[in-house]
Design a protein around this nucleic acid. Structure first.
Lengths: 254, 254
DNA sequence: TCTTACAATACCAAAAAAATACCATTTACC
DNA sequence: GGTAAATGGTATTTTTTTGGTATTGTAAGA
């Protein structure tokens, strides 16, 4: 039982929860906590047994309270895993200014995350790639494409292009492209990110499970070595209805 | 096992790592060590077996912790060789950006810019505004709405809400909201910006001269005083086909 | 008295977590 | 070059945690 819950479920609060059966008071208390944000979207509730013990009621009573919140759509149960606060719109935030990892970010929201590879291959560079990566005519380019999935919902398509000089064999990449580059002592030190909005084309829409024309957040990133040489070029397309990009800015004093 | 690791993985630290499963605590401990620099980039971790023995957990548990750090790009594995700390891109930080005005922004891009006021007024705050700006019930809010035009093309709709305490009279604002706030010694020092993609509604599409459903870049910004008090809340909608948001990221150890 | 809502107890099943045992690759030393 | 030690990789099993369900008891109201 977390400390947060100690205050949320304090017996005073439960008693003050108005009249009626125990499970109704408990439900109102939980509902209030969700609406006020004491329980954030994606947060896990403590185990039913813990709640029962803390509120000194039986587990069935706790379950009855939770039952109603589940049928109202405020909570979601996962057998063997826990009970979680639902997200009204499944919005995921990425905070650049914080050092939170993707896994932890998702875990904090009670979401599981994984990837599916769509493509790995060696290609003759497109004009775009040649220009951006500054390739000689005879150098090949490695392309890696994958679908990022959160809570079994496709969230984004990631297309990476890397110069063959830095990544001759794209098939060795398993989880992290950057980890693979690191293995060859290739270390980008700077990146430029370009964020724009675009309407989904048919194939992207199909992969992401949205309708054609839906708004998508396109993020293009080019990363550079200390020498100024471009290493990698990634085009990502995020579902506009499921992804927020959050940045914190500080104002310089002139 | 090095002495360094003895302190990094001391069982006290592992216990103090908060609640949750063992592998999560272990992951957090390692992550912390990497972030604080106790483990520099390029350093090798001790063998998994050693870590397991020292932390008195099974090797699989150690591997699970390391797995997540690998997929986040903080660590790199080399079969038969060891596990090493990388200098990953997932640890990018957005360079301290200045809160630039639209005019400056466009000037930097070599474009002429002007605005057309759509609305100025004093209103009873909406629930959104009350929550975000932290307003008392009897305080009014000033709303400013204008169309931003660059190179004679409508580019964005800007809706600003400012607490009446800071801007009692919105009609005095002519060009820059920030300049007007500055006149009253109101100086935001921090802002949080949320960028997302959305499909244009009819009215927005008409004002911006695009078709309904076209992709738009929605940027919400809340700016704060040094005290943490929110000053202003701006919702902007940019034409997705005409505006890019560019951020430069530097990669490095904090 | 009978019905019904409420609450408690005891046990079931699924999922996650952790441990065990064994496999594959790299490195180093001979 | 070959071989053994060291290291990460994987499959399988066991334990623990968590929600799910059936049964029973109790008290209020028809």
């Amino acid at each position: 039982m977390t400390d947060d819950f100690a205050s949320i479920l304090s017996s005073e609060r439960l008693q003050a929860g108005g009249s009626g059966p125990l499970y109704v008071k408990l439900r109102r208390t939980l509902e209030e906590a969700i609406r006020t944000g004491s329980l954030g979207h994606g947060d896990a509730l403590p185990p039913e047994r813990d709640i029962a013990e803390f509120a000194t009621v039986s587990r069935v009573t706790v379950r009855k309270a939770i039952d109603e919140l589940v049928s109202d759509g405020l909570l979601v149960r996962r057998h063997g895993s826990g009970t979680f606060v639902t997200k009204p719109v499944s919005r995921v935030e990425q905070r650049l200014s914080q050092l939170t990892s993707f896994t932890e970010d998702m875990a904090r929201r009670g979401m599981t995350s994984r990837s599916e590879w769509l493509h790995k291959g060696i290609h003759t560079p497109s004009p775009d790639e040649m220009m951006i990566l500054g390739l000689a005519t005879d150098v090949k380019v490695s392309r890696l494409s994958r679908l990022r999935i959160a809570d079994n919902q496709p969230l984004a398509i990631e297309n990476a292009s890397v110069s063959g000089e830095f990544l001759p064999d794209p098939f060795v990449v398993t989880t992290s492209l950057y980890a693979e580059l690191e293995r060859h002592q290739v270390r980008p030190v700077r990146a430029v990110q370009r964020i724009s909005a675009t309407n989904m084309k048919e194939e992207d829409a199909r992969l992401l499970g949205v309708s054609v024309g839906a708004a998508g957040l396109s993020i293009e990133r080019i990363s550079y070595l200390g020498s100024g040489r471009a290493v990698e070029f990634t085009r990502s397309l995020y579902r506009g209805d499921a992804y927020d990009f959050v940045a914190e800015l500080t104002i310089g004093t002139p």
